[in-house]
């Protein structure tokens, strides 16, 4: 157990400067918007920047977490460690998921504060619903991107030539099949349930149905992609 925890801590520590920078940038931006924004401009909407920005940046960071091991030869130590190989992608994934959790929390908090200060008169939504929607969107897409990236990296380091090409092929190949299967899959999964959201926009009561199909489909795809990545690490990945 201790070795696994030690490796997890290393994965977390490795990019903490970037995490720190992103946290500080988010806090500074949010404070700035809270202090200088006004309800009649769109400026406060910039609060969405950290939220969407980190959603895009973190998958790249995860990819870098893998690639840097091979580029700096640290894979020689990593793969020689007396642990089952599947821990390698799993722990990197989990460490960056923690980053995502932290950045999600701060950016959504900032967003909530901005909403309360500037837009609560126009749109009224319960706090729970606000956070629920934010989390659902953020984490389903994060998990999907992370899983895709992990599979791409696992594929890349299962070969010695044409790594970039293979990574790209995995990306587009997955996208292709995912898009093709999405509609029927989501429709089928929607049967599992839905959540009804009520909010007021400019005084009018609106109900919005959030169907579980899409997030479930994303979770399933994520699990499959991660599973394949783990399989590759156990059977093909090498220095």
């Amino acid at each position: 157990m201790k070795p696994i925890v030690t490796l997890f801590k290393k994965e977390f520590k490795e990019h903490r400067l970037i995490l720190f920078f992103l946290v500080v940038a988010t806090v500074v931006l949010d404070l700035y918007l809270l202090l200088t924004g006004s309800s009649d401009s769109a400026k406060p909407l910039w609060v969405l920047a950290p939220y969407s920005g980190t959603l895009i940046i973190l998958p790249f960071l995860l990819a870098h977490a893998f690639t840097s091991e091979w580029k700096s030869d640290t894979a020689y130590v990593l793969l020689a460690l007396p642990i089952r190989p599947f821990w390698i992608p799993v722990l990197k994934f989990l460490a960056l998921l923690c980053y995502a959790g932290i950045l999600f929390g701060i950016s959504t908090l900032g967003g909530y504060l901005v909403y309360v200060r500037f837009y609560a008169n126009h749109v009224s939504i319960s706090t729970a619903d606000f956070w629920l929607l934010s989390a659902l969107f953020y984490f389903s897409w994060t998990l999907l991107f992370f899983s895709l990236v992990t599979l791409m990296e696992a594929a890349k380091f299962s070969v010695h030539r044409y790594r970039g090409l293979l990574g790209t092929a995995v990306f587009f190949g997955t996208l292709f099949f995912w898009v093709r299967l999405s509609d029927p899959a989501v429709r089928w999964l929607d049967r599992i349930g839905h959540y009804t959201l009520t909010l007021r926009i400019e005084g009018e009561l609106i109900t919005q149905t959030i169907r579980f199909g899409e997030p479930l489909w994303i979770a399933i795809t994520g699990a499959v992609l991660l599973g394949l990545a783990v399989l590759l690490f156990e059977t093909k990945v090498e220095v």
Partner: peptide, 20 residues
Amino acid sequence: TPTVKARIAYLPEVQPYYPW
């Protein structure tokens, strides 16, 4: 296996340690 690896010390030709 991992159990075997726990009994082997490997010094590769390259510099394999995390530079940071």
